[in-house]
Design a protein around this nucleic acid. Structure first.
Length: 620
RNA sequence: GCCGACGUAGCUCAAUCGGCAGAGCACCCGCCUUGUAAGCGGGCGGUUACGAGUUCGAUUCUCGUCGUCGGCUCCA
């Protein structure tokens, strides 16, 4: 504990580097002011269109801004065009932004017919809450900003005048529903999203970047590369893995098994359904029922499809007497789980209803916890290194006091204790992380690894969770040195996420250009004329003999067309064989990146491919 | 689940004002024997997501259901 203070400082510095600094820098930037000001201009245009509109909040966000309105009717795409047009007129008026600090009373007078603003003012007045409803430490000053005919409750900052918002450097993107204060029990407002930049070129670049991102969207690539499909009759969120997807999954499992075997895991297998009793016992039903498929009833007994593997693994741990000498016990399973995610939450492979988790549960003594927890983090980092994943944030998800007994098991002492254990482990391991309230699992705190899909949506990829609740509920125990019974802690972990989310993420991460070891088809042999078909088949057989996934393209197409189709399927190696190659027992290699190496002995190519596959190398 | 948009051949997309549903690719059949991203010709392919309604007539207009997408909420 004594050295933690020094380490914590380092961590804090790194943390700030990772996110806070970026955040603070953005908030002070000119771009931030432009976006914030553009939001005000948009609100003015909307209020001119709907004088009876109630306006709420309109902050800058990454790449732009939004503003939420309570309007008499739904906005149409045509409305957006009109609003955008009016905004261009307004900004060209070169109106100054003027700040005025005033009392709550004065502010309430100004916004007398704006109930949302009144609510915001009251929040500020009580020193309690900011515009998102989050608690504030200090009582903030109340200020308004005015430009042209528009006045908004706002703490700023803004640009000097609307002339800094270039009429050709912003664009309204879309309308979406959003709950007031983000609470689904509140009224749904209409949110207009816009993007704004310093100049027209930046806007153009951003829009181009969006187009590019669409090309590597895993839903598009998954279809093009024949990885997976969804079928209406099978159901939403239930992917069907095509042969190519099946291969990727097999490779990921092979990787996981290798790594886990080295790390001392044991593999188990458990059923997909179980009696209701198990989930009552585990505590899932009181806390998690909403996300579970409803039960099926047979001969008077209710059965549930499992949303998680943990209760089954706990049963295995509890199936015999355990000694402290046996711990840690690490039970691993690529378990198939089903969760009834709400229809609007589904998102390609990234958010599905059937999933195969890279799951494991380790049962540890309190003394073993830190080392074991860090060993898991270390495993993550090994995987990320292998995949070249660099953009992620480790998020330490904690409970909230208000959620105790509702979202979280009601034992504040253990929450605080285990959260401190996680924090200490991360600090001692010198792993950078950010802390977030009210994001924990119902049974304990966790470290989530946050990543972003190519269109910018945030997901938890891997997860490393502490569970102090279920071991108690299942009465799990081991015998310690003194012959007394003690309860182990449980660590849930899924460094390779689920197959679904992992493959979805990797598709986007690699833009479909999987490294050789993950590529469904590693080699395509392309005979130039049908005179080399037999040779092509011979080569194919030989490659397969060497454990290389390979097909020969014997279609009646031109070589150029064959190359094109292999290229479109992002096959890493194309072996072009004509008469010359056939006579010499050679191949001409064209790699996916367009590079060429002509007339190389087949054995040389096999050695190269085998090397890349064995090392799971990134390079071709 | 909520707000909004969308749903045409296996895929990508057309179809003017409500007037016989079309193209490219893919697939099948031929011809061509070819050197690093599409050779040529022909053929097959549709209850316009599904179900109602309005109309002489609906891919087109209205309503409902299902699904997808953009967000919100929620999450591996």
């Amino acid at each position: 504990m004594k050295s933690n203070v020094a380490v914590a400082t380092t961590i804090q510095e790194r943390k700030r580097k990772m996110s806070q600094q970026i955040q603070e820098k953005y908030e002070e930037s000119h771009l931030y002011k432009i976006r914030h000001s553009a939001a005000h201009v948009m609100a003015q245009a909307v209020l001119e269109m709907f004088p009876e509109a109630k306006y709420t909040i309109g902050p800058p966000v990454e790449n732009g801004f939004y503003y939420d309105f309570d309007l008499p009717r739904n906005l149409t795409p045509e409305d957006l065009e009109k609003i955008e047009k009016r905004m261009r007129q307004i900004v060209q008026g070169k109106h100054e932004f003027k700040k005025t600090v005033l009392s709550a009373e004065e502010a309430k007078k100004i916004f007398a017919d704006q109930p949302y603003k009144i609510e915001l003012i009251e929040g500020l007045e009580q020193g309690g809450f900011d515009e998102y409803g989050n608690p504030l430490k200090e009582k903030p000053e109340i200020s308004i900003y005015q430009h042209d005919s528009f006045t908004d409750l706002c703490r700023g900052p803004h640009v000097e005048s609307t002339k800094e918002i270039k009429p050709d450097a912003f664009k309204l993107m879309n309308v979406a529903g959003a709950y007031w204060r983000g609470d689904e029990n509140n009224k749904m407002l209409q949110r207009i999203y816009g993007t704004a930049w310093e100049n027209a070129q930046q806007l153009k670049d951003y829009l181009h970047q969006l187009e590019e991102a669409k090309k590597r969207d895993h839903r598009k690539l998954g279809k093009e590369l024949e990885i997976f499909i969804f079928d209406d009759e099978v159901g939403p969120g239930l992917p069907l893995w095509l042969p190519n997807g099946g291969i990727i999954i097999e490779e990921l499992e092979k990787l996981a098994k290798e790594m886990e075997e080295k790390a001392g895991y044991q593999r188990v297998r458990t059923p997909v359904v179980s009696k209701e009793d198990l989930f009552l016992h585990s505590g899932h039903l009181p806390y998690y029922a909403e996300s579970m498929y409803p039960p099926m009833e047979l001969e008077g007994v209710k059965y549930y499809v499992k949303p998680m593997n943990c209760p089954m693994h706990h049963k295995i741990f509890g199936s015999k007497l355990r000694s402290y000498r046996d711990l840690p016990i690490r039970l691993a399973e690529y378990g198939t789980c089903y969760r009834y995610e709400k229809s609007g939450e589904l998102f390609g492979l990234m958010r599905v209803r059937s999933m195969q988790m890279n799951d494991a549960h380790m049962y540890v003594t309190e003394e073993q916890f830190e080392q074991e927890f860090l060993a898991v983090i270390d495993l993550y980092l090994k995987y990320f290194d292998l995949f070249g994943i660099e953009k992620y944030v480790m998020r330490f998800s904690k409970h909230s006091k208000a959620g105790l007994g509702k979202k979280y098991v009601d034992n504040e002492r253990l929450w605080n204790k285990t959260e401190e254990m996680v924090r200490r482990a991360m600090i001692n391991g010198d792993v950078p992380f950010v802390e977030v309230e009210d994001e924990a699992a119902f049974y304990g705190p966790k470290i989530d690894v946050q990543i972003w899909s190519v269109i910018g949506r945030e997901f938890s990829l891997a997860t490393n969770q502490v569970d102090f609740a279920q071991p108690a509920r299942f009465d799990l125990k081991y015998t310690n040195k003194d012959g007394q019974e003690e309860m182990p802690l449980c660590i849930h972990r899924a460094p390779l996420s689920t197959h679904e989310r992992m493959v979805g993420f990797l598709l986007e991460h690699y833009a479909g250009n999987f490294p050789v070891w993950l590529s469904p088809e590693q080699v395509r042999v392309i005979p130039i004329t049908d005179g080399q078909n037999e040779y092509a088949e011979k080569i194919t057989a030989q490659l397969r003999e060497n454990g290389i996934r390979c097909h020969a393209d014997l279609s009646a197409q031109r070589m150029n067309a064959k190359i094109r189709s292999a290229q479109l399927m992002k096959v890493p190696y194309m072996l072009v064989v004509g008469d010359n190659e056939m006579k010499a027992g050679q191949v001409s290699l064209r790699a996916r990146d367009g590079s060429q190496q002509n007339n190389i002995p087949l054995g040389d190519f096999i050695a190269r491919a085998r090397d890349r596959i064995a090392r799971r190398a990134a390079e071709l």
